[in-house]
Nucleic acid binder design. Structure first.
Length: 338
DNA sequence: AACAGTCTCAACCGCCTCGAG
DNA sequence: TCTCGAGGCGGTTGAGACTGT
């Protein structure tokens, strides 16, 4: 073997990087490009291991890294993706242009996790905490605006307002199924233990749909009740996701400024229908007539790393099969979920 | 002003996967 | 086919900043 270890050596420096070291690393990568991290320290004149150089570059020095406060849209994306994917920081970071996995991870651990707990939501399962909410079906409120309000109105906290959004029966049935343990959420991953009496491929797809059902439940219950700002300014939000906002905004006045929306009734099927109608004008749409289960579903629609793009597809399925979560689990030996 | 407690986040640690040899 | 190192990733640490008393 000609390979040499790239992180072993005498007198390697650890700890915080100095400005001088940063300059050397930036200068070297500017001239020679990324890669070959094993050799970079020696060639750049740094007493660091290659791995340390790579981390310093990818997490801090890289020119296209966005730093500073996370926007509301970014926060919502993080929460939604965390609900469905768990601590997959690199996957989440891919949906947030110019954000690093390390930054997303830190932001989650220091800000979002605490706020979810404050609002009575388990940051691991994304379900209401049992101790704070005796009714597991009733969505808890996550107030996206609290952070900005805290400075100005520290004595006011809308999180004390009771959750006021009764979800439709369809969504409630899905959420209650999830809450009752028929789907199991482990370490933030939604893993549907309900076994469907179908072929392996369709079973996997159903479980994908189930996973998305839980995330849409979370995002809707939190987004509708929280304060949303116009999605038009958001960057990187897929169209279908933006449309869900637009629909809500079209139907609820002052959504962008109200904290407690107090929506008396929200018709989830109607929302999905609207979503589909909106999408009919676009390309690459799976219409209600298309059987998501039996077709060779294009892989682009079930890309696990692009779940936001799947909303149209699985919401269409939910509309057609509102009771899919109740389907028989007989005869299934399916073990490869998701 | 001094101290203690808390928070933040850059950096490190260690495990895993992939691919070169 | 096997070995092993590079690179990727998530978890954890700890120094410095911040806040409260």
């Amino acid at each position: 073997m000609s390979k040499r270890p790239y992180c072993i050596g005498e007198g390697l420096k650890k700890g915080a990087w100095t400005t001088e070291e940063d300059k050397k690393l930036i200068s070297y990568i500017h001239d020679h490009g990324e890669g070959g991290w094993r050799d970079i320290p020696e060639k750049a004149g740094l007493k660091r291991c290659g791995k340390s150089c790579r981390l310093r570059w990818t997490n801090y020095l890289k020119p296209d890294i966005k730093r500073g406060e996370f926007s509301y849209e970014e926060e919502q994306i993080i929460i939604m993706l965390h609900a469905s994917r768990g601590n997959k920081w690199s996957v989440i970071a891919r949906h947030l242009p110019k954000r690093t996995d390390n930054e997303v991870k830190n932001y989650w651990n220091t800000h979002l996790k605490k706020r979810l707990i404050d609002d009575g939501i388990d940051p691991v399962t994304h379900k209401p905490l049992a101790s704070s909410n005796p009714n597991p079906v009733e969505p808890m409120k996550f107030d996206f605006q609290k952070k900005s309000n805290q400075d100005e109105h520290s004595s006011q906290s809308s999180s004390t307002t009771p959750a006021s959004l009764p979800l439709s029966s369809n969504l409630n049935s899905v959420k209650s199924k999830i809450s009752s343990g028929e789907t199991q959420i482990e370490s933030g991953h939604v893993s549907c233990k309900k076994r469907f009496g179908r072929s392996s491929s369709t079973s996997r797809l159903l479980n994908k749909v189930a996973a998305r059902a839980s995330s849409i439940g979370n995002i809707l219950s939190t987004s509708i009740e929280g304060t949303l700002r116009s999605p038009a300014s958001s960057s990187g939000l897929p169209d279908s996701f933006s449309q869900s906002y637009e629909y809500m905004i079209d139907n609820k006045e002052d959504l962008g400024t109200s904290i407690d929306l107090n929506i008396p009734e929200y018709d989830f099927p109607q929302f999905l229908e609207q979503l589909i109608n909106d999408d009919d004008e676009n390309e690459n749409i799976v219409g209600p007539e298309q059987d998501l289960l039996m077709s060779d579903f294009p892989s682009t629609f079930v890309d696990e790393d692009d779940i936001l793009g799947d909303i149209t597809s699985w919401s269409t399925y939910l509309l057609d099969h509102p009771n899919f979560m109740y389907e028989s689990d007989q005869d299934s030996d399916e073990k490869n979920f998701l």
